[in-house]
């Protein structure tokens, strides 16, 4: 794909906020930053849809709305089906001369619960059918809206209210599902990971996803002060650390070909820059139970899983 869009920080800052202030996301919410930045990448007429979740319940509380674009929420497992229906309608209306727009961008935002778990069937179906839409997974790694329960996206060892830091089982026993690889396996034109800390990379990738012809998937890490147990000012710090420790490497996959993005490529070229996961873990209360003689082995296991996935990614990226 040829990509020519360029912008300066000022141009981005001068773009309208399509998610208006006055929303009720928590102080320091990572998902809020992700939404603001992704929405700076819109090209023209746009419709946004959400499944049930944190962002849905905090941006539209009747009679108030933060959405300056047409917006619809239907249910929890439906993000991709919502987008598919909207896209199908535009296709039909355009073909039948009933649409005043040349093109309308369709964006679905969903959290980890709505993507890895309950929404994966609708997502898989919509990807296979090839609907032209951008799916943004804002990943806060647990069901935060209902009060921090584990999802398929919760990492190994993390405390949640359904994977408590017990005396026998220290947090979540399983690593997270590699959702981005599952999406890549569908053969869609554009898949990428992003972190709000690298805001320009995120905005560019959102735009590339919109420009891709067919389904595009953007997996964005979205730290959650409440659920990850850290002070609200550290949200960007953690989304940067996730990249620096290779817990959440940044890459894109265009038409099946993987390529590391600049922040992760720098680490690949100079492995000394790769920080140990313990720096990421110790910054978050959800991993604090692992810093005991009894459960230290879990930290080693987390490091092993991260290293293995990083190694496999480097191979995919031919580094």
């Amino acid at each position: 794909m040829s990509f020519t869009w360029k912008f300066t920080a000022r141009e981005i800052a001068e773009k309208p906020e399509l998610l208006a202030p006055g929303h009720r996301m928590c102080s320091g919410c990572g998902a809020a930053i992700v939404h603001r930045l992704v929405l700076k990448a819109v090209r023209g007429p746009t419709i946004v849809t959400h499944p049930t979740g944190c962002v849905e319940v905090t941006t539209a509380i009747y009679p108030y709305t933060s959405w300056r674009v047409p917006w619809v929420h239907t249910a929890f497992e439906t993000a991709a089906a919502n987008a598919a229906g909207i896209e199908a309608a535009f296709k039909a209306l355009r073909r039948r001369g009933r649409l005043k727009y040349d093109h309308v961008d369709v964006m679905a935002f969903a959290g980890d619960g709505g993507t890895y778990d309950i929404g994966i069937q609708a997502l898989s179906g919509a990807l296979e059918r090839g609907h032209d839409f951008l799916y943004v997974l804002y990943d806060n790694e647990a069901y935060m809206n209902t009060g921090i329960q584990r999802s398929g996206g919760t990492p190994l060892g993390a405390w949640t209210t359904t994977t408590p830091a017990g005396t026998k089982i220290p947090g979540k026993p399983e690593p997270r599902k590699p959702i981005e690889d599952i999406v890549v396996a569908h053969g869609v034109p554009y898949v990428a990971t992003a972190s709000p800390a690298h805001w320009m990379d995120l905005v560019v990738k959102a735009r590339k996803g919109l420009e891709a012809k067919g389904p595009a998937f953007l997996h964005v890490i979205a730290p959650c002060p409440r659920g990850w147990r850290y002070e609200s000012s550290k949200t960007i710090e953690l989304s940067r650390l996730a990249v620096e420790t290779c817990v959440f490497p940044l890459w894109e996959c265009v038409d099946g070909e993987h390529k590391l993005s600049a922040p992760s490529k720098a680490i690949a070229l100079k492995p000394d820059l790769k920080k140990p996961v313990v720096e990421y873990l110790k910054a978050q209360g959800r991993f604090s139970h692992l810093f005991t003689p009894e459960f230290e082995r879990v930290i080693d296991e987390i490091q092993r899983v991260v290293d293995k996935r990083w190694y496999l990614l480097l191979k995919k990226c031919s580094v």
Binding site: E56, I61, Y62, W67, R68, V69, V72, K100
Partner: peptide, 14 residues
């Protein structure tokens, strides 16, 4: 749902 005339459908309704 029309981009020129935005509406919000599906708000939390308490």
């Amino acid at each position: 749902l029309d981009p020129e005339n935005p509406i919000t459908i599906g708000a939390l309704d308490l």
